[in-house]
């Protein structure tokens, strides 16, 4: 496990050009360890930029990124160490596949780490299993796989480096609902088994509500909210104001409360809603008797 902390981060896209954009403003956060943290925000709110700071793909113009209380830019030559520590799965990661077999592609990261053949073999098979990739696909060309399988192969390529922190940028973008659910299940299982820190970037509230332990909400390059799902989704009005959607079930609950039913705040999954409605029905019945 590793602890990520960001202190007073400022980041500009295209600094000192006519196209300059102030992408991240005064970011101060600490990512909880051993949990799934969701980063949500509107398109262009700075989510993807933020996660690229975690492993030193981007360097902030001011402020510090600390991993295990160590400034990652202290020794710029050793930045690779943090790339292995914080595994970043980019958006649409299937574009990174290049080897002639899936096996070799997953092995690319571990090979760069300079591991032994045997260790690489272990890791590739383990990573493929975590990513939900059939062992028989390993010998195929990555370009023959379906979209969902390519995505899994790319995710396995990161998991194979056994990072302390796994960061996934929109891991389910462009997948059908079934593919999305199964990728999220794999991620959850991976997190539970190894008890690592996982960070997921998304703008889908529904997915985040089901998957994450805590949330970071970004708006216009700033941290708008942090907290557990309960805390964040109970501020539904603010989320809507930021142009973010709230889970559909939360919307239904809101409508119910507008109709005068006493609905507790912070219901954001269907399971919770079912529980609540059942108890409501029970108390109604008791009231009738």
């Amino acid at each position: 496990m590793s602890r990520i902390e960001l202190i007073d981060i400022e980041y500009y896209h295209g600094k000192d050009t006519p196209y300059e954009i102030h992408a991240l403003k005064n970011i101060n956060i600490a990512i909880p360890e051993g949990q799934i943290t969701g980063i949500i925000g509107h398109t262009g709110s700075g989510k993807s930029t933020l996660v690229q700071l975690f492993n030193g793909i981007l360097k902030s113009h001011s402020g510090k990124v600390m991993i295990d209380s160590e400034d990652i830019w202290q020794k710029p030559k050793q930045i690779k160490r943090f790339r292995y520590k914080v595994g970043l799965v980019m958006q649409y990661p299937e574009y990174q596949l290049f080897e002639d077999t899936v096996y070799k592609d997953i092995a690319y990261g571990p090979k760069n780490m300079g591991l032994s053949e045997e260790e690489i073999d272990n890791r590739v098979r383990e990573a493929a299993a975590f990513a939900g990739l059939d062992a028989e696909l390993l010998e195929r060309s990555p370009f023959d796989l379906s979209g969902g399988q390519k995505r899994r192969a790319a995710i396995a390529g990161i998991i194979a480096m056994r990072p302390d922190v796994l960061v996934l940028d929109e891991p389910a973008a462009g997948l059908d609902p079934r593919g999305r659910d199964s990728i999220f299940n794999n991620i959850r299982e991976y997190q539970k088994t190894l008890n690592t820190t996982v960070i997921i970037v998304s703008h889908s509230m529904e997915d985040m509500a089901r998957l994450c332990d805590s949330l970071i909400v970004m708006h216009d390059g700033e941290i708008a909210m942090t907290g557990s799902c309960d805390e964040v989704f109970s501020k539904a009005d603010e989320l809507v104001k930021m142009g973010l959607d709230i889970p559909q079930i939360t919307k239904v609950m809101q409508l119910l409360s507008e109709k005068g039913i006493d609905v507790p705040k912070g219901i954001y999954t269907v399971e919770q809603a079912v529980e609540f409605l059942k108890s409501l029905r029970k108390s109604k019945k008791e009231a009738l008797q």
Binding site: I57, R83, M90, Y95
Partner: peptide, 16 residues
């Protein structure tokens, strides 16, 4: 942009 993205992705896997 695409080159940039792919480079980032490979850097994340330790490419140098």
């Amino acid at each position: 942009e695409e080159t940039d993205k792919i480079m980032t992705a490979q850097k994340a896997r330790g490419a140098d």
